[in-house]
Each structure stands twice: as C-alpha cells, then as structure tokens.
Design a protein around this nucleic acid. Structure first.
Lengths: 369, 369
DNA sequence: CTCCCATGTGAGATCGATCTCAGAATGAGG
DNA sequence: CCTCATTCTGAGATCGATCTCACATGGGAG
C-alpha cells in the first residue's frame, strides 16, 4: 500500500539522486528535472519514463542541494528563552502548524535570556540559510544582531516584544489594554488599594522609573512594562492615587524574591485588598504564599493573575485571570513571517499585530460592595 | 566590541563566501580552506592574510554548502506527538541542550499521534539530511518507516517507547518498576482495593487482554502498558487478587471518557479505597471529579498519580506522585544519538537506557492502618 | 652536483538540483 | 525548396566548502 523507498535492491548506501533517476529513465538530468519541475517542454514518453523511474527508485529530492541552488531552505528559526516554558512551547506549536502548511520546518533555539546566546543563535541560523526567524528578543534595545538579519534580507518577526526599531514586524498581546481591563474590574468590585506584582528582565534598568512609563503604541515594548502601563492607566482613569509602595517588580528567575515581594505586600501597614500578579510565575508565588499562610481567598485577599494555567481551575477558589493565547500568537507570527518570505520584497515592514487577551472572571476576587 | 558582519560597504546582498575571503587575501580558495580547516601546510604569511580577510569580511562558512559536501548537516530531528505538551517540551529542552554542546540544531515536528504524519516527518527529515532522529513513535509495531531510516544509515533513538525491533536504541522511564513501587506503597498503607486508571493509544488493540500483559525487558513497550504491568506485578507479589473491574483504560485524547471512567470507579458496588492514575491527564481528571463532588482526599479516597505537574503542590492536599524527568530523558536520548552519530559505525545498536522515576510521597494517600 | 623529501600552493573535481543556452528535429507557410 | 517558428533534448554552468592531486620550491644528504 505505502510506497517503499529503498526497497529495490539496487541502491543500498545513499538515497537515489536525480542522476540515478535520469540514468534509469535513459534521459538527461535536465530532462528529468524538467519533468519533476513541470517547466519547459517534455514529450509524453519522457514524462512517463521519468515518472516510472521516480516510482521505482523511490526518489525524493535532496533539499540541501535544492537550498544550495535556490537559496531557499524551507526552514525557519524560532529563538526563545526556553522551549520548555509553557508559553514558548505553545507558541512553537502554533508556528509549527503554520510552517507545516507552508511546507517548512522549524529549528528551535534557547537563549536563557542571554544576549550572547541570542546573538550566537542568529548567526547559526543565518549560516543554516533559514528563510526567516521568529524571535522573542532578550533586549528590546540592543538589537544590532537582529538588524544584521534584516540587512541580510532575512525576514524577522518579533514575538511578544516590540523592538525600538520600528522596521521589524511584531506580534504582541494587548497587554496594556487587558491589564487595564483587569484592574478596572477590581476597581468596579470596590477595590481601592491594588498591588501590582510583576517581573522584569535582568537586562532592564534596575531602578525602573515608574513615573516615566507612559502608554505608547510605537517604540520598544515588552509585556512586563506594558502591563505596568495598563495598571497605571486604569488607576489614573479611575481617579485613584498611585502608591509606589504597591508596585513590586522582581528580577526574572529568582523565585525567592518573588515570595519576598508578596510577603512584603502582606506586611504593609496599609496592605492592599487585591493582588494583581502580572505573570504566571508571580501568580503561582502569590497563591502559594497565601495558601501556606492560610489567608483565605478571596475573603481576606483577592487575587487576579495574568496568563492562564492548568492549575488555576483545579485549586479552590478558581483563580480569575487574563488569558493570552500563546498558540495564536505563534500562529500569527508565523503568518507574518511567511507573508514576508513569499511576499514581494517591497512588502510593508514594521507591522504590529495585536492579539487580544480575554478576561476570565472566576472566584478569586471578592466584591467589596 | 562585537564583530559586525557585513558592515564593510562591499558585499551588501549575500554573505561573503570563501571565494571572497580568498580573493581579499590574494590566495586560492584551497589555501584559504586549508587555513580555516587547519589541515595541510600553510605558510605563516598566508595564515595571517586569510585570518585578516576573514575578520574584515566577517566571514562565516555556509553550512548548507558544507552539508552538501560532507553529508553532515549538524541538524537532528525530534518527532513527537505535540511539542506544546509539557513532557515533550521538557524533553525537547534536554535534547537542545545536548545538541548545543555538540554544535547541532534541532528541528521539531508534531505528529498528533498519527502514523501518516510520522511517516511524512521522517521522509522530510531525511530529505533535509539530518544527522539523526529522536522519535516517540506512534506505533511500536508498525515501524517500517523507522527501519527505513536505519537502513539509510541515519541514527535513530526511540524516546519513551520501545519498538518491537530490538535494533533501535531506546530511552524509557522505568515505568513498570516505578508503578510497582507506587502500588507497593499503597498496599503498605493498608489499601487492598486499588483502581488503575490509564490511557491507551487509539492505535492499541481496543480490547486489551490484560491477562496477556507480562513483564518483559525486550519486545515492544509503551508507558501505558508498562504501568499496567507494574500494577499487576505489585498486586500479585503482595498476594492480592486482580479485579478486572478496577482497571480502566481510556483512549487517549477523550477527556469526557476519562471523567466517566473515574465516575464509574466511584459508583462501583465495592469501590476502591485508592486511585492510581497512570498519567497526568488522568490525574487531573480524577482530582477534578473528586474535587467537584466534594469527596475529601485522602479521607474518603486516596489518590496517587504518575507524572509531576506544577499544580500537584498547589492544590490541597498536595498530591503524591511518581515523577519522571522528561528533561533527563531528552538529554539521555540525545546523548545516545550523538554517540551513534560520532561513534564508529560498528557501535552497538539496540541499547536500552532506563531513566529512574522517583516516588514523591505527599498528602493524598491515607493510611488505613 | 644530484636526488629526495619536506613544505607550500593552486587548479579542478565533487556533492545534487536547477536553469540557461545551444542546437536538433519537425512542421507549416511562402 | 527555403525560412521560420515550435517543440524537444542534453551539455554544461552554478551555488560554496572541501579535498585530491599535480606541481612547484627549497634545503639537506649522499
């Protein structure tokens, strides 16, 4: 039923090449290539003979040689911090699905949020002649290596972050709006003192000037900062004061400091009535600590998180969250990438695609009415 | 500080080739290649001139051309059901880490547990001239396409499953022993009626003959069946009867049927005192249902699961589980693969690597002493 | 003063698919 | 009968890195 490549006793070592097909069919390589490629003229007899030879030998073209000649490899790269992270692996799946549709494959590389690894990754992918790269850049400012890619005419799409250079396509969630909506919801439930617990990249300036964070559509953007913006915007719009003591930004990748930050909020003289946790790690830390200290949610403390995870519906109470679909973001990024790859070279660059995030109200927010 | 490839105004379009380097250094391609490759003889002057030219042009060799010539691509393939699954994405990370050490990249492909997609994937990877493939086969019996790989001299390692053909390396968890240990623990806590809730592949024979499942080191193996074996072995060793009504195997990917299976156990005339859930999906379903019905764990029902997940320590009570490290399994598989790739062609094939699983006792098992 | 070996260098082949181009065969129209 | 267009085919070039091999030099030994 299925074809059985290599089952004929002739070629044992290497796969048959076009040359073998041509020899078997008794024609030149050029003629065989014409039949396979479907261009130029070919007599019916040659078409038949080549087709037959292909079938007999189980011939499949060598993509490396094809890449060599055409420059197109049918491979794209995905550069992220850590493929085992739920966000990135879901995005990867979205990218793979689109790639499959386009007849391409995906090489994934991890940076562990290190600029040097990211630079290395782009170099390697370039030497593999990938058709394009989807990247979640470590830094939204230092992107000389990414500019080098576009300079080398390699399409690039930035995922989940927007570079300061506006010449590069980006796909991001509407972090600011979704966060503002979530904070609005807390406010509508009567909350006045709302803590913001988030993470910042190690690479970010250590003393982040909250006062300087402003809503903006252009310019560099990363989720952590956009969510701070949404928080500030919602408070300001509601006429509530911004208490700097209610904002905690912890360097990424230091679990203890996350717990410390939550504990510090609880120990405040005027503690908040609700915690907004701006990423899944912080949500987990906050829930863990509240649970460990037997602080009832939402009676004594309301909790609202960003990012949905499996466990948010398994624990009691179920956690209200803002959800972003990493899968959809991956798909969108891949769609953009292939649009650049196949599109005319004059295609518009720097397009910003915003994926909506949804608010899922569950049982972790108390109404203070 | 960093090198700036392509910054010299000369070559704008494509990256510089060895030919460009040779021309700039005023030597032949052969001489330039000798300097770069570090073989043959080269005068100091030529070494210096070539090195300088490489630096000036920011030359980096084209891996496609190198692959063309050498047959080695420095790319390996990872074929799994779904890269967004926690198990596979962790394994992928392990594979990537080893690949990085070996100077290779990883192409990931999803099969969604469909044999046709898996066959397609292997064909594509072959045409990309990957140096080797790590695969979690859909079927442990139909593996003609995998045999074709080894026939084409492409190293293959089977992850999490063992093919019936013993000529292929495999890396698996010690599912049977770990399950037996977990069941032993339940028995030692006084449990006599222990339910086994697991999943089977759609591809498996629908009416699995439990009676025919026997412990065996060779032969085809997949986690679901090995765990059944461990369960049976532990019961038998303890002299407990095997009640077929306490064993439920649900087709993979049908959440409702999982919940039904759990509900059926609870509705039994003589219900079990403990549930052993043989995979993370089933553990989740069981916990969900027990939680929804307000059946206290472990007072009314003990629960012990296979696979650790983030949420098992967030819920109350914390769930006792058997943990397998997908990351370690990925690493081990990649180690084996590269051993095959770089090893002498006469390397031993068919090696079986077993990764130990650990039992983590927490609070979801009641002692009936 | 030869002969030989160690050292050094470049021309050209190779990997496999694809495409250009020259030329052959055929038929139709003048 | 000649011209020209159409259809068809294959030789050879190309992509870039690598390696073989032939051909230099040079110095030292006999």
């Amino acid at each position: 039923m299925a074809t059985e490549p290599g089952s004929s006793g002739s070629s044992k070592r290497s796969r048959p090449s076009l040359k073998d097909v041509a020899a078997r069919a008794g024609v030149s390589r050029a003629s065989a290539s014409r039949v396979l490629g479907g261009y130029g003229y070919s007599s019916q007899e040659i078409v038949d003979r080549v087709t037959e030879a292909v079938r007999e030998l189980g011939y499949e073209p060598d993509r490396i040689a094809r890449t060599m000649r055409s420059g197109k490899s049918d491979v794209i790269g995905f550069v992220c911090a850590d493929i085992s992270d739920a966000f990135f692996s879901s995005a990867m799946r979205g990218i793979c699905d689109v790639a499959l549709r386009e007849g391409s494959q995906v090489i994934a590389m991890n940076t562990d949020d290190q600029l040097s690894q990211e630079q290395q990754a782009t170099r390697v992918l370039l030497s593999h002649k990938v058709d394009g790269i989807i990247i979640t850049p470590v830094s939204v400012r230092e992107h000389g290596h990414i500019d080098a890619l576009t300079g080398a005419e390699v399409p690039v799409v930035s995922l989940d972050r927007q570079l300061s250079d506006i010449g590069i396509d980006s796909v991001v969630a509407d972090n600011e709006a979704a966060t503002a909506a979530a904070i609005d919801h807390l406010i509508s439930q009567g909350h006045r003192r709302i803590a913001f617990l988030g993470s910042v990249q190690r690479e970010e300036p250590p003393a982040l000037r909250i006062g300087k964070v402003r809503a903006s559509v252009v310019g560099p953007s990363r989720p952590s900062l956009d969510r701070v913006r949404g928080y500030l915007r919602a408070l300001t719009a509601a006429g509530l004061p911004v208490d700097r003591g209610l904002i905690a930004l912890v360097p990424h990748g230091e679990p203890e400091r996350r717990l410390d930050a939550v504990a510090a909020m609880l120990a405040l003289e005027h503690p908040p009535s609700a915690l907004f946790t701006a990423d899944s790690y912080m949500t987990k830390s906050a829930f863990s600590l509240l649970s460990k200290r037997d602080i009832p949610i939402p009676e004594q403390m309301s909790l609202l998180g960003f990012d949905d995870l499996e466990w948010t519906t398994l624990v009691r109470p179920q956690i209200s969250v803002v959800v972003q679909s990493a899968y959809d973001m991956g798909r969108a990024a891949a769609d953009r990438l292939f649009a650049q790859i196949s599109g005319s070279s004059g295609a518009v660059r720097g397009q910003r695609t915003v994926i909506p995030a949804r608010f899922l109200g569950r049982d972790s927010v108390r109404s203070l009415g």
